[in-house]
Design a protein around this nucleic acid. Structure first.
Ligand SMILES: [Mn+2]
Ligand SMILES: [Mn+2]
Ligand SMILES: [Zn+2]
Ligand SMILES: [Zn+2]
Lengths: 147, 147
DNA sequence: ACTTATACTTGGACAAAGTACAAACAAGCC
DNA sequence: GGCTTGTTTGTACTTTGTCCAAGTATAAGT
């Protein structure tokens, strides 16, 4: 189980290094969407001392190789997660929560532009609005909640 | 023509202020997709001295009011443009160029998530890949071009 | 196992992008 | 004109991410 990620790295042409194994392990342990610095903090909490730069390097390499999913949801920082299936995201403008939205098609890219713009690798959809919890909170109270 | 933008601001419940008029004027003059700092630089070049903060404030207000379009294409900074019709974007991973992609539907939101996530205001699609010019350049040379 | 090429890491400095805040200002309304 | 309140403005600051050069360790070759 520990070597399973290593195998996928090697298959992707990546060297299996301590930072990369630690980073992908952290993402698996945390579940959900996390920024580079959140991953860094999680590792620090668990006594894995990695330079901030190395976390950024690892996340970039892993995302480029397709081992983790990178999503820019416009929340400021890019969020990463372990890649199971290709999907999209919904961002709540009230509380900032990010939730998954199943992809309409199964393959990537799941949409194609009408015009010819070149070669399309992927199409990421970001839905924006107010999440169910914030809508419900509006009925009762007015306070924003934490996810 | 100068007061036209002012009217739309008032209609949107915004006060018509010098920074906002200058910023929307700059976006109209520049055409295309531009970052907050690019707008700031353009104004400075045209002897309109605005604090950087004010450009950020104005762009945020104008975008929230729907007078300009805000697009996070993951290029680092958010880009703004004068809003004519709702559309999506294609980003070239080679040269960083951003081009418009006509929206599939006409209205906003143009897509709906399968699941119930709450109230969806908009759905922005970001296509990523290699633009036609970079593809063509690949055949002849190897160098990246400017847009 | 020993050697080697080079991908990767590491630390530190740096740059870009955006936010916080409080005092001064001015747009809109009477 | 005078008032109220949304905005501006200057400054400082944070957050997010990149660059670089020297050291390290992975994987391949022998
Ligand atoms: Mn996700
Ligand atoms: Mn556009
Ligand atoms: Zn919410
Ligand atoms: Zn291009």
């Amino acid at each position: 189980m520990a070597g399973e990620a290593g195998t996928r790295m090697r298959e992707a042409g990546l060297r299996v290094t301590r930072p990369r194994v630690a980073v992908i392990g952290a993402l698996e342990a945390m579940r959900g969407h996390h920024t580079a610095d959140e991953v860094h903090a999680h590792l620090a909490r668990n006594d894995v001392a990695l330079p901030r730069t190395s976390v950024y390097n690892s996340l970039t390499a892993l995302a480029d190789a397709g081992l983790v999913m990178r999503a820019d949801v416009g929340r400021g920082a890019i969020v990463y997660e372990v890649a199971e299936t290709w999907h999209h995201h919904f961002v709540c403008g009230r509380c900032g929560g990010v939730s998954d939205v199943p992809c309409l098609a199964g393959a990537r890219p799941c949409l194609t532009p009408g015009e010819d713009v070149g070669a399309v690798d992927e199409a990421q959809v970001v839905f924006r609005g107010t999440c169910r919890r914030c809508l419900d909170a509006d009925g009762g109270g007015d306070t924003a909640h934490e996810h």
